[in-house]
Each structure stands twice: as structure tokens, then as C-alpha cells.
Amino acid sequence: MKARGTTKSATAFRTISEVSSDLDVPQHVLRFWEGKFPQLRPLKRGGGRRYYRPEDVDLLRQIQNLLYGEGYTIKGVQRLLKDGKVDDDPDARRVEETPEEPDVPDNFEAVPDEAAMALLDGEEGAPVVALDGLSDTIRQAIAQVLDELKEARLLLAVGEEKEIREV
């Protein structure tokens, strides 16, 4: 048994409780990540006891940073890992994510509020949206969504005009 205050070598295997403590992530989250990220393959001994290799711990640290630090979704991190875009360079991980389709009930009716419409139109007096403190990734995503909304609005307007002409 190791004495308190001593540390393992960098090449030593770690238990789930050690990794959980080092990363400040609950053990159940580490087990959940194992199910979501097949690249994580800790050794399992008798009784299902897990032993994480140093490369497993590094990968867990990267997953933690992408999810909690960079704001990626589980699917986004899965895509990055699948595409081999996870490495030590944080700028290399900044790729555009395809957003998931939201679940919209069949009876949902979108009713835009006036402030949102003013923002889309770029009108004077439109609400000012504070983007300070947001990462470049989030800013880019917001700008992309705003452009898509403007484009959708134009398509709807053209469709309404065409419909009116046909009547």
C-alpha cells in the first residue's frame, strides 16, 4: 500500500478513483464516457476493477476539456475523435459542428417576437446582444445561426409571394 503524499510515476496505471480524483470528474461519468467513446479502453481485472493507462488518462483529460472547457456535445467529441482531430493543439480541435436536429412537437407553431425580428432585420433600436466572454467557436455558431435564420426568412417571404400570385 502506498503512503499518503507519494505520487505514482507517469507511466503507472491508475484506478478509476485516482482518475476521478485527478480530473475532478465523478466515477459514474468516467464509466459513462467509456460507453460513449470506444477509444477509451481501460484494462479490467477481476471483479471489473478498471486500470487506466497514461494514454487513457490523457484522452479523458482531452474529452473533459472538449466537453466542459470548449462546450462540445458528446456527439461533437465523438466526431472529433473519429476524424482524428483530437491532439495536443487546442486550435486544431476547433472544427465546425453540425448541430443536432431539435425535437419539435407536431403541434408547434413558431411565433417570432418583435425583438427577434428587429434583430434579424438589423433595424435601429434592435436589442444589443452581448457577445463578450464567449469563445470564438460560440460566436461563429451564433453568426451562422443568424445567417441561416435570415436566409430562411427570405425563403419564406419568397414562398408567400409565390403563393399569393398563384391564388
Results as ranks from 00 to 15, higher is better:
100 E>D: 12
121 D>S: 00
70 E>Q: 15
80 L>E: 04
81 L>P: 00
87 D>M: 05
52 Y>M: 02
113 D>I: 02
66 L>P: 03
87 D>W: 05
87 D>Y: 06
117 M>I: 02
70 E>W: 12
65 N>I: 11
60 L>C: 10
83 D>L: 13
77 V>P: 06
78 Q>E: 07
42 P>C: 03
51 Y>P: 11
57 V>K: 15
99 P>D: 11
75 K>V: 00
101 E>A: 11
74 I>A: 11
114 E>C: 13
38 P>Y: 05
86 V>T: 04
98 T>P: 01
93 R>L: 09
81 L>Y: 08
102 P>L: 13
59 L>M: 10
102 P>V: 07
50 R>W: 00
50 R>Y: 01
70 E>Y: 13
30 L>G: 13
108 F>P: 00
113 D>F: 04
101 E>Y: 03
64 Q>D: 13
54 P>H: 10
47 G>T: 05
105 P>L: 08
47 G>I: 02
60 L>H: 04
83 D>E: 12
49 R>F: 05
95 V>M: 07
65 N>Q: 14
112 P>N: 01
44 K>V: 06
50 R>E: 02
40 L>H: 07
35 G>R: 12
72 Y>G: 13
69 G>I: 10
99 P>C: 10
68 Y>M: 14
99 P>E: 12
106 D>Y: 10
24 D>K: 14
28 H>M: 00
65 N>F: 12
45 R>S: 14
105 P>E: 04
46 G>F: 14
39 Q>H: 09
102 P>W: 15
62 Q>A: 11
108 F>Y: 15
26 P>Q: 06
112 P>F: 03
117 M>W: 07
26 P>T: 01
41 R>V: 08
110 A>M: 09
40 L>R: 04
40 L>A: 08
51 Y>M: 12
97 E>A: 12
70 E>N: 13
55 E>M: 13
62 Q>T: 11
115 A>S: 07
101 E>W: 07
61 R>C: 11
32 F>R: 09
41 R>K: 14
40 L>W: 03
121 D>E: 08
78 Q>I: 06
71 G>H: 13
35 G>K: 12
115 A>T: 07
118 A>F: 09
68 Y>P: 09
40 L>I: 04
58 D>R: 15
40 L>C: 08
48 G>W: 14
58 D>Y: 12
109 E>Q: 11
24 D>Y: 06
75 K>P: 00
95 V>W: 07
56 D>Y: 00
56 D>A: 04
82 K>N: 00
72 Y>V: 00
119 L>E: 08
35 G>T: 10
59 L>P: 05
112 P>H: 00
26 P>L: 03
